[in-house]
Structures are given as structure tokens and as C-alpha cells.
Design a protein around this nucleic acid. Sequence first.
DNA 1: ATGTAAATGAAAACGCTTCTCATTACTATT
DNA 2: AATAGTAATGAGAAGCGTTTTCATTTACAT
Lengths: 139, 139
Amino acid sequence: MESSDIKKAGLKLTLPRVKILEILEKSERRHFSAEDVYRNLIDEGEEIGLATVYRVLTQFESAGLVSRHHFDSGHSVFELNQGAHHDHILCVRCGKVDEFVDETIEKLQHDIAERAGYQMTDHVLYIYGICADCQKDTG
Amino acid sequence: MESSDIKKAGLKLTLPRVKILEILEKSERRHFSAEDVYRNLIDEGEEIGLATVYRVLTQFESAGLVSRHHFDSGHSVFELNQGAHHDHILCVRCGKVDEFVDETIEKLQHDIAERAGYQMTDHVLYIYGICADCQKDTG
DNA sequence: ATGTAAATGAAAACGCTTCTCATTACTATT
DNA sequence: AATAGTAATGAGAAGCGTTTTCATTTACAT
């Protein structure tokens, strides 16, 4: 994933787009809200508007560079598309996000869709729970 | 499910609550947005505010009478809790909602949570696709 | 009947996201 | 390197679903 991907997506190479892609790539974090990205930009001294962040993230999504998730219903979370497909498991206490893959579940979903007469286009699987750390904290 | 369930939930028996529960019960529809419920009330000549609809649905959710889903990220969808747990498969063209249960997936989710050190509290599984009817319509 | 706390309706506020529009910047062409 | 033409940007307003506020009304225990 590099700036050339921006051009491949048919988007002009502009500072906001390059900076936003950099933030998604360089951070050890993997999941960002638009606000998260915006604050990172401000911290780096970049004067990029929140509207632009939303626009660029949406364009990146259309281009297949990032995925958008709706973990908790309140706001969107963006994640750079790298590595294979995976689902998410989230801590309802601390907000931690882990990832997992289960081939059996993947296959079963296709089977279910087929049996129901649907041509499957996508799926969403979130597991919510209390992570190991949070279980220790409050019993 | 009857009005007595409202009392059991520790809620006073009021006209808005009774009417809303009625709508959820009587309709052949199973999934309602707050707006859907509100419009049904208006159509029946009830002068109940949208704020009340939201409040009552939220209370019903806390009481375990209804479940709230976030199918498409835009708005919440409510469903009366009756029958067993099930997941949803949705048509991205016409918005149809079907339901399914898969014990294997249910079990695998628990296993995954356990393996990741999480104490599972909930899960969300939505399959998106094009339903049989919509496949016919546009090929 | 009566008192008290809970519930309601209307409107305002809210948080996240998108839109508007005047200005700026990128890229292709000369 | 200069220019033209289109796309991208920033700031603020608007949009949308939802929640809150607050004065008024209602249900329920006494």
C-alpha cells in the first residue's frame, strides 16, 4: 500500500490523501474513526478539515483501500485493507478490538445464503464480550 | 406477550406503551424502525410523539421485550422478542429481511470468544445478498 | 379522592456525517 | 515554464436519526 494506490484508484495525488493514507499505514493501531484520523492530522500540524477526512475515507472505501465497520452503531470505524478477510471480536468494557478468521463459519454463511435463495454479497460478524484484562479488573 | 408484560417490566401501564406493543404484536411485519412505529400510530389516530416512541422502544429493549438491530448503519430496527434466537439475512436491493438459525455457527462463536480470552456477551451476524426475487428482476 | 413520582409531547439539542460553495491545487497541454 | 480546465479542499451550514429538556399530564398507591 503506497501513494501510488491513490492514483490507481483514479484519485489525484493530494496532500490530504497522502497524509491520511500515511496515518492508516504507520500507526500500530488498525481501527480509526474519522475523528481519530482528524486528530492525528492536527497533532502532526496538518490543517486538514474533518469534512475532507470523511470524503477521503469514503473515497478510499469505494476504491477498496479501506473497509468501514459499524461496530457500536454510533459511528463508523475505518481499517486499511491489508491481509486476508477477517471478522472482529470486541470488548464491551474497554473497546479493544481483536480479529479472527474461521473458515467453517465463512463456509456456513455461504451455505445459508444459498439455501435461502440469496446471492451473498457481504456479511458482518461481530462478537461482543469482556476481554481477559477487563475480566481481571472487576471480577 | 401481553400488556401485563409491561407491568412485569416495572413500567406503568400507559396508552403509548400499550399501543406500541400492540403494533409490534399485531402486524405481520417483524422489523420496525422507530419511524415505522410512529407512522402506524398516526395512521390509527393516536397522538403519540416520536420522542415517546423512542423512549418506549428503548425501555422495551432494556426490559428484554424487544431487540434492537443496526442492519444498515443508518437507523435502528426493533423486533419483538418471541421465539428463539436467530440471525438475519438481508436483501441489499429490496430490503427484505429473512431469519435463520445455525447451531454450528452459534457454537463456533462461543469457541472463538473463549479461545480469544473473551467472556462472550453478545454477537451480531448479518448476511447481505440479493434475494431470489431481485435476482429475477435484473438478472 | 389525593399525593407523588413517573410518563408524556413539543421543541431544542445532540453527535456523526454529508453537503454547499467559494477558493485552491493538481495535472495535462502547450 | 506558463496556462487552462477540472477536481479537491476548507469552513460552515445542513441533514438525519436519536436523545434530552422541561412544563404538563397521568397512573397508581394510599
